[in-house]
Simulated scan of single mutants.
Amino acid sequence: MTGTSNTQATLKVTTDAWEALFRAQVAVMRQITTMPEFAKLSLREYDVLFNLRHAPENETRLVDLNKHLLISQPSLSRMITRLEERGLVSRCTDPTDQRASRLKLTEAGLSMQQEIGRAHVKQLHLLLGEAMSEEEFIELQRLSTKLHNAVE
């Protein structure tokens, strides 16, 4: 199953596969958003903390963070202001570009991201762990990464 073919997929096969992947994600996200941990932060706010957590030194420019999110830049700026008011992120001027902002995950933000993240991965495993074999999950990761790289 790990072999590749040079034959381009048909329109129907491409669309059907995308729809199946999208529907699977919607079903999982509906379950995840009911977790009590997401009463503390919205899923989009958690996504911001998650992406900051995985940035070098838990810090990145606003414009670079926005590349990883499904949210407009003005909406992200408003969200960052709310997260800043809660003490979860801090904002400062980028020393290399005075027009840009740098965002940093605070200790409180890191703690909240880790707390929700631990519950999140456990819930994902409960929801999905028996759906496929380990080899199938590895193949799904490989294929998903291949799709991501093709789009990027």
Rank of each mutant, 00 (worst) to 15 (best):
E59Y: 02
S111V: 13
Q31S: 09
L124V: 09
T2S: 09
I116V: 05
G3Y: 11
D94S: 14
H68E: 15
L52I: 10
H120Y: 11
Q25S: 07
M79V: 01
L65C: 12
A108Y: 03
L143Q: 14
V63T: 04
L128T: 13
G117H: 02
F22L: 11
T10C: 09
R53Q: 14
H54M: 08
G3E: 15
T96G: 01
L11S: 11
L11P: 11
A39H: 08
S75Q: 14
P36Q: 02
S5R: 10
K67N: 10
L143F: 09
V13P: 01
H120W: 08
L127S: 04
L110E: 14
T2W: 00
N6H: 09
S42Y: 00
L65T: 03
R23K: 13
E84L: 01
R53G: 10
E37I: 04
A108D: 15
D64N: 12
K122E: 15
S111D: 07
K104V: 08
S42E: 02
P74G: 04
Q141P: 00
F22M: 06
Q8T: 11
R53D: 10
L52G: 02
V63C: 04
E135K: 12
V48Q: 06
R86L: 14
P36K: 00
V48P: 07
N58L: 13
I80S: 05
K12R: 11
T7F: 06
I116Q: 06
M1G: 15
M29E: 10
N6L: 06
G87N: 06
L49S: 03
T15Q: 12
K67F: 05
A24H: 06
R86W: 07
T2I: 12
S90R: 13
Q141V: 13
L49K: 07
L83H: 01
C92K: 14
V28E: 01
S75I: 10
S72L: 02
F38S: 10
Q114P: 02
L62T: 15
I138Q: 13
E57W: 02
T7G: 00
A20H: 12
N6D: 05
Q113W: 01
L147I: 15
T10A: 13
G87L: 01
L69Y: 02
S111G: 10
L69A: 08
G3N: 14
L49M: 03
L140Y: 03
E57R: 11
R23V: 06
G129D: 07
R82S: 14
P36T: 05
T145H: 01
E57C: 07
H120P: 04
A17D: 11
P74W: 05
M112S: 02
S133F: 04
E136M: 07
M132P: 05
L126G: 06
D97Y: 03
Q73V: 14
V121N: 00
Q31G: 03
K12I: 08
V26H: 00
E130A: 15
A27W: 01
T7Q: 14
L147E: 08
E37C: 03
Q31T: 12
A20G: 12
L88F: 13
T93Y: 05
D16E: 15
V89D: 08
L76C: 03
L143H: 09
